[in-house]
Amino acid sequence: MNGTGILKGLGVTLKHFIQTYVDDIRYGGRKYLGMENFEVRQGLKAQGAFTVQYPDEKIAVPERFRFVPFLVVNEDDHPDAPGKDWCTSCGICAKVCPPQCIWIVRSEDPVTKRPVPEPEAFFIDIDICMNCGYCAEFCPFDAIKMDHDYELADFDRTGTHIHDKPKLSKPYEYYYNIAPTTAAEEAQARGGWEHPDVIKAKKKSGEPVMEQPWFMLRAEDPEARARAEAERAAKAAAAAESTVSEADIAAERQARRAEALARHRAWAAKKN
């Protein structure tokens, strides 16, 4: 009979319509409360409306989620090397990056002119980055990782959309928090929770490697923290005692930078 097909179709829409209310009743008004309900609502058992009430609730992104990359650095109170970059400026990420949006300036020793395994500057143009994750995948030092923070919208791009090193650097603790399983797998592959070079050095010298990432140790063991603090204070005092003052260090850094710039200029001139 003519029209039955349409009626059948309308039946489906009606079912969807009713389901919304059945679903509301099923939750007894607590549909938008509690993690449990959220999990069901956003999963395969979902029926009826399954809208995410952004920004009041957000779907947390899964571990492997890729947005723009960031650089892993040690925590500020890390006992061995506070705030140290994991990146050794080996350049692999810049080479493998498909749209070539990573710029790295390798540090040089001011005296010997030998490269120092540490980036002097690190830029990622997020207006080019395609969030592909190659940099994170191929970095041999687990130093660059894909961030989960997608809330980056802003009103101007000229000044903000090239992420530089301070903006890119995030502590290891942050990385562990966004991707605990992956971090653990990687730590296992490295043979410890520290930077691969540190692990290598420690293994060589027979020092024990950290059993856990530093921020966990510190949380578990307040003594360790105190010890680290004290050590750092002592170091700082020693530094203060020595003749090198803050200003001197700053001046030296300035000189180094000027020198690097000059070198770069020469290099660029030669290239042209």
Partner: peptide, 13 residues
């Protein structure tokens, strides 16, 4: 007026 980075930005972004 507004730039939304990402490739592609997720719906939440």
């Amino acid at each position: 007026d507004v730039y939304v980075p990402g490739c592609p930005p997720t719906p939440q972004a």
